[in-house]
Design a binder for these strands. Structure first.
Lengths: 146, 146
DNA sequence: CTAAAACCTCAAGTAAGCTTGAGGTCAAGT
DNA sequence: ACTTGACCTCAAGCTTACTTGAGGTTTTAG
């Protein structure tokens, strides 16, 4: 395999190493999440550190973070060199906080669901499950008392 | 408003009471999640208890449960009468378990992310974040050691 | 009776996150 | 040189959960 001389990887190689399908890599490139130089023959060549960026995307996906969010944090990461420890720390803490939030939301829901198991009301009126937080206050669309 | 004589509600009324847009109600009907009789003029008329079913859908949405799952549990709920307390209890417990599962998954991820904040590896090799569970064992697609 | 509000169907569009296919080019081994 | 596999670019398709619009009918209030 005398393919990648320098530290340039072909798209197939990157796919194999990252576990991300080639089609997805091209898609990420369209979104501006990753970048590659081209050979004279127009084929993509990735620098090694791009694997780190791809890793971040993979992690984000596991965390349920939408690509648009990834896009946002990536605006602050230089595309031409590997993310520093500081960068990674910053991103990790941001995402940790986001998970934290969703986790506690789920906890709330679960407590409500548990408390609701016996009641069987579901009557669109005072059921907390059907009236998230505010619902009885505003006059927008949504279930309310009659 | 002498509209709904019996206990039959028009689609607009149901929408107002449930907070679910008319278009969504029609969509749920297509999926077989809800049902309505028709007037001689072909307009939908819902029986009151259909609001309960719609409530279940609304709750499921808040819980992040996909409609396909709702569809499944609905196969065991009679469409022609309101779900009993037992029915509701069964469904609630099922969904509670599902939330539980997703919640603990998030917890794991968060622990890993926290533990990973300092390491900054993301090197596709031994990083736990990039290698969920099994990854080093199988030979399928995905990151692995080299 | 008539006008307006509510309703109907069916087709197409939206967003996210990709995949698949067609039709063609590039690079590597022999 | 030639074959094969890897790669290229569009364009279109897929899933979920709906929304929007066009064009037409029903119901209800006055």
């Amino acid at each position: 395999m005398s393919l990648e001389p320098d530290d340039l990887l072909g798209v197939g190689e990157v796919s194999r190493r990252s576990g991300v399908p080639v089609s997805a890599l091209r898609f990420y490139e369209e979104l501006g999440l990753i970048a590659a130089t081209r050979t004279p023959g127009n084929q993509r060549r990735y620098r090694r550190h791009m694997l780190r960026r791809i890793s971040l995307i993979v992690v984000a996906k596991r965390l349920g973070i939408p690509l648009s969010d990834v896009q946002e944090v990536f605006t602050s990461l230089p595309i031409d060199h590997p993310p520093s420890q500081r960068d990674w720390r910053r991103v990790a803490q941001l995402w940790r906080a986001q998970i934290e939030q969703r986790r506690t939301q789920l906890e709330h829901l679960q407590r409500e669901l548990t408390g609701c198991i016996g009641c069987g009301c579901l009557s669109m009126k005072a059921c907390r499950l059907l009236n998230p937080e505010d619902a009885l206050a505003d006059e927008g669309p949504g279930p309310r008392r009659i």
